[in-house]
Simulated scan of single mutants.
Amino acid sequence: MKAIENNQQFTAVLSEGKPIVLDFYADWCGPCQTLLPIVEKLSTEYNGKVEVRKVNVDQNNELAARFKVRNIPALFFIKDSKIVDQLIGAAPEFQLREKLDTLLD
């Protein structure tokens, strides 16, 4: 799973036209670290269909501010350049899978 380091990288991913999941996290965040293996697994499973990217809020506060991230982990589900869903806090794999499948409809 690739990281997005700045707004330019986000714009480049957005211009590809695929659905996107952004995982805003921090290295010091326990729930973020719990969620990370699930997100990485789904990133591999949905490879080629959905762009799953992680964003470190400590290193990229500009993008975190753009998405108004107040709590982490925060996942944003983007389709056709619009946020269609979001999830704040740790969540079970089945819930993430449901949201990913909805992006593909």
Rank of each mutant, 00 (worst) to 15 (best):
Gly89Gln: 09
Thr102Gln: 15
Lys68Trp: 07
Leu14Val: 00
Ala3Gly: 12
Tyr25Met: 13
Glu98His: 12
Leu36Thr: 08
Val50Cys: 07
Leu87Ile: 09
Glu45Ala: 03
Tyr25Lys: 08
Val52Asn: 03
Asn60Glu: 12
Gly30Tyr: 05
Gln59Ile: 03
Asn71Lys: 08
Thr34Gln: 13
Ala26Glu: 04
Glu93Tyr: 10
Lys68Ile: 06
Val55Ser: 03
Phe77Met: 10
Asn7Pro: 01
Val84His: 10
Pro92Trp: 08
Asp101Asn: 15
Val39Pro: 04
Leu75Lys: 11
Val52Ser: 02
Cys29Glu: 05
Asn47Glu: 14
Asn6Thr: 03
Ala64Ser: 13
Gln86Ser: 14
Val69Gln: 04
Val50Met: 09
Ile20Leu: 10
Arg70Thr: 00
Ile20Gln: 01
Phe67Gly: 02
Thr102Pro: 00
Ile88Thr: 14
Glu62Ser: 05
Gln59Pro: 01
Glu62Phe: 03
Ala3Asp: 15
Arg66His: 15
Lys49Ile: 12
Leu104Ile: 03
Leu96Ser: 08
Ala65Glu: 11
Asp58Asn: 12
Asn6Ile: 01
Lys82Gln: 07
Asn56Gly: 07
Tyr46Ser: 04
Leu42Asn: 04
Asp27Val: 03
Asp85Trp: 03
Pro37Glu: 04
Thr102Asn: 14
Ala26Asn: 04
Cys29Trp: 06
Leu104Ala: 02
Asn56Val: 04
Lys41Arg: 09
Asp80Trp: 00
Gly89Ala: 14
Phe10Pro: 01
Asn6Ala: 07
Ala91Cys: 11
Ala74Cys: 10
Cys32Met: 08
Phe77Trp: 04
Ser43Asp: 13
Leu14Gly: 00
Tyr25Trp: 13
Phe94Glu: 09
Leu87Glu: 13
Gly89Leu: 13
Val84Phe: 10
Leu63Pro: 11
Phe10Ser: 01
Asn71Asp: 14
Phe10Ala: 09
Gln86Phe: 12
Leu96Phe: 09
Ala64Glu: 01
Lys79Tyr: 03
Ala91Pro: 12
Ile78Ser: 00
Phe76Lys: 10
Ser81Ala: 15
Lys49Pro: 12
Arg66Leu: 15
Gly89Thr: 11
Leu87Met: 14
Cys32Arg: 03
Asp80Gln: 06
Phe10Thr: 02
Asp105Glu: 07
Asp27Tyr: 05
Asn56Arg: 12
Arg66Asp: 15
Leu22Thr: 12
Glu40Lys: 15
Val69Lys: 02
Gly30Leu: 02
Gln95Met: 14
Ile83Gly: 02
Gln33Asp: 08
Ala74Ile: 01
Lys2Cys: 06
Ser15Phe: 00
Ala74Lys: 01
Asp105Thr: 09
Ile20Met: 09
Asp85Thr: 03
Phe10Gln: 06
Glu98Pro: 07
Leu42Gly: 07
Asn61Ala: 14
Thr102Ile: 13
Leu36Arg: 13
Gln86Pro: 08
Phe67Glu: 02
Gln59Ser: 10
Cys32Val: 07
